[in-house]
Amino acid sequence: MGALSIRNVKKSYGNTHILKGIDLEIEKGQFLILVGPSGCGKSTLLNMIAGLDDITSGEIAIADQVVNNLSPKDRDIAMVFQSYALYPNMSVRKNIAFGLEIRKVPKGEQDQIIARVAKTLQIEHLLGRKPSQLSGGQRQRVAMGRALARNPTLFLFDEPLSNLDAKLRVEMRTEIKLLHQRLGTTIVYVTHDQIEAMTLGDRIAVMKDGEVRQFGSPQQIYDEPADLYVAGFIGSPSMNFIPVDLTEQQGHAVVTLDNGHAELHVKLGVINDAQRAFVGKRVILGIRPEQLTDPDSAHSDRGNFQTLKAMVAITEPTGPDTLVTVTFNGVKTVARCHPRAAGNPGDLVQLVLDPTKALLFDPATEKRLA
């Protein structure tokens, strides 16, 4: 049974098209992330799933029931907002119980549900407090508890961690992931934070300008981005993009990198048909910082690695790694190195590139050549 089906959903205000035909489907128990920059339409889509915003055209089904014309209260959903939306004059217990009282759940059953939810979220000791007496993380737990008390078909989270400080955001991210694993709930979660998207979701929809640019698993989107936008949005630090000339040698794609002192011919993977059409032309080489590193930090079979030399421009220590900025083909390029191998500005360092992870893109369409 599909938990959520979104079929060619569009949203317009007059001649302004906010969503341009969204198609997504998730099964019961899956965790869907809607990720993208501000203004991409992700919160609008969430509000349409919730029934807080009308659909211009298309169809949304929850648990195989089309809900286009149903009010929010009839959609069997629970929503956790960015602002927590707690009642300030009510205790934590009453905040969690409020929806149960509206639905006339018997008092004894209410007490059982509140006890179960409070134990799950470890907020038993907070039940008598008011929201003003809680920290941001505790308020977020209460907002989640109110949603959990409903036991709905679908949970909707609208940037729930964006008001928290960095440390608490990481802690709450872990809490939400554990909660999902424990309860097997179906979740749609909106965020602009690609790290949240990668760590929480088992399905990700990367959005831009009212469209889904790619929909898939976190690893698929990371390893096989559909285009330059997805490749650059997912991953931190973001993927390096270097304009290169493409040739073919013995069935392999070969690109030329100029480090400012010499031209380096780098053999990549076996050339495919899409890439072969660009032989003799300029393409965009995409390589992630962790796939350009010092020889001792390389994870894969070093026999296939391509050795490069480059001059260090900037080093940025992060603790376990140091980000080293070098230049290839006139473009600043970031490598992730062990601190002992990072060198200093002005040093010539040796790097290795994993050719199996390098991607090529069409400069005109920005699509990956796959």
Rank of each mutant, 00 (worst) to 15 (best):
268 L>G: 02
324 V>R: 10
11 K>V: 03
133 Q>H: 08
197 A>Q: 05
238 S>I: 05
185 T>M: 15
241 F>Y: 05
369 L>E: 12
357 K>R: 15
111 D>L: 11
279 V>L: 12
40 C>A: 12
69 N>I: 04
202 D>L: 05
131 P>G: 01
356 T>C: 09
77 I>W: 00
334 V>D: 00
126 L>I: 07
234 I>D: 00
298 A>Q: 06
193 D>H: 05
119 K>N: 15
237 P>T: 11
76 D>N: 15
73 K>Y: 10
202 D>E: 12
193 D>I: 08
281 K>H: 03
309 K>V: 02
162 S>D: 07
357 K>Y: 04
351 L>R: 05
207 M>D: 11
291 Q>I: 00
115 A>G: 02
364 A>M: 13
275 Q>T: 09
26 I>W: 02
94 K>V: 06
308 L>T: 05
173 R>A: 09
350 Q>S: 14
157 F>M: 14
178 L>A: 14
67 V>G: 11
179 L>S: 14
291 Q>W: 04
359 L>T: 06
21 G>S: 09
111 D>M: 08
118 A>D: 12
134 L>I: 11
275 Q>N: 14
304 N>K: 10
354 D>T: 06
208 K>W: 00
287 I>L: 08
299 H>K: 10
277 A>K: 14
337 C>V: 03
191 T>R: 08
116 R>I: 01
110 Q>E: 14
117 V>G: 02
301 D>T: 01
362 D>P: 01
300 S>M: 10
267 K>W: 09
53 D>Q: 12
221 I>L: 15
155 F>S: 13
19 L>N: 11
3 A>R: 04
264 L>E: 15
14 G>E: 08
32 L>E: 11
233 F>N: 06
130 K>T: 05
223 D>V: 11
185 T>V: 13
242 I>M: 03
343 G>S: 12
152 P>I: 01
77 I>H: 02
343 G>P: 06
53 D>Y: 00
204 I>F: 06
298 A>I: 11
204 I>M: 09
323 L>E: 10
129 R>L: 14
235 G>K: 04
233 F>I: 07
336 R>P: 00
195 I>N: 11
42 K>W: 07
160 P>C: 05
123 I>P: 11
85 A>C: 00
216 G>T: 06
46 L>F: 03
338 H>F: 08
18 I>E: 01
106 P>E: 03
332 K>A: 08
136 G>K: 14
150 R>C: 03
90 M>W: 12
370 A>G: 15
356 T>D: 13
240 N>D: 00
292 L>A: 11
102 I>F: 07
203 R>K: 15
165 D>R: 02
102 I>H: 07
128 G>A: 13
5 S>K: 15
135 S>E: 12
171 E>T: 13
262 A>D: 13
211 E>Q: 10
217 S>M: 01
106 P>C: 03
10 K>I: 08
44 T>D: 00
197 A>P: 05
228 L>C: 01
40 C>Y: 03
335 A>W: 02
354 D>G: 00
289 P>T: 11
26 I>K: 05
324 V>N: 03
353 L>D: 01
29 G>P: 07
142 V>G: 07
